[in-house]
Amino acid sequence: MAIQNVLILGENTVGRAIGDMMSQAGLSCEVANRAALADQDLAPVDLVIDALPEPTAEKTLSLEQIGRRLPERTILATLATSFGLTGLASSSRRPDRFVGLHFQPPAPDTRLIQIVRGLDTSETTIAACRELVASLGRTAIVVKDSPGLVYQRVTAAVMNEAIYVLWYGLASREEIDSMMKYGANFPMGPLEMADSLGLDVLLDTLEELCRVIGPEHRPCPLLRQMVSAGHLGKKTGKGFYDYS
């Protein structure tokens, strides 16, 4: 099935950026709020992307309601990929037509899209998503449903370790960042990367990795302290660096 008609739920920055990406690729795409869903004609929609924030009880409920109203063939995708896609898939009542899509920031300049396969996601659904990503001119990687997927899991480990190195007092923040730039060809040091991502987001990811995968991911106490202090990185003007 070729995806031609896309509905994005969530009139937020990410939702609009993804909408732009789809429209530029010539797909018919609409960005709407969940409240407007009731008035929407869903018959022509091939794919619904849920761009609402990370999961809550409310989200689970809304996916169930959306799932019920969609035509049989329609694929339901969520951007909430970090925390248990399979659980959301099951509440959508169409687990075979349920998939995670993770657009590597910054959207709409995304180069990488991770397609997340839940336990029951069908091959047909994966194939349709692969085709969609190809038509957007992006690179698709299909990954299993697991905390942090692939990219976030590996980079979270590096950022966490950089914070440990800082906490142990092995080197200064600038030294740590410049070493990874010169020694490992990173375009950005891991502490700068953490500040851009948001320290609260990093902490949540590590907590989940630690809970599901194992203690090798336990977050550095310094990271926890920074989040408690409200120093969340660029977005609050202060993280490992000062942006004020």
């Binding site: 590597q104 990488l112 690179t139 990954v143 692939v150 990219y151 590996v154 375009p187 995968i213």
Partner: peptide, 23 residues
């Protein structure tokens, strides 16, 4: 570990890291 856990192939994990991190 991600490969061992069967998350994706070695080639795909490499691709994800290269595109995401720009390394």
């Amino acid at each position: 570990r991600a490969l061992q856990d069967g998350l994706a192939s070695a080639r795909d994990i490499d691709e994800a890291q290269k595109l995401g991190l720009n390394i």
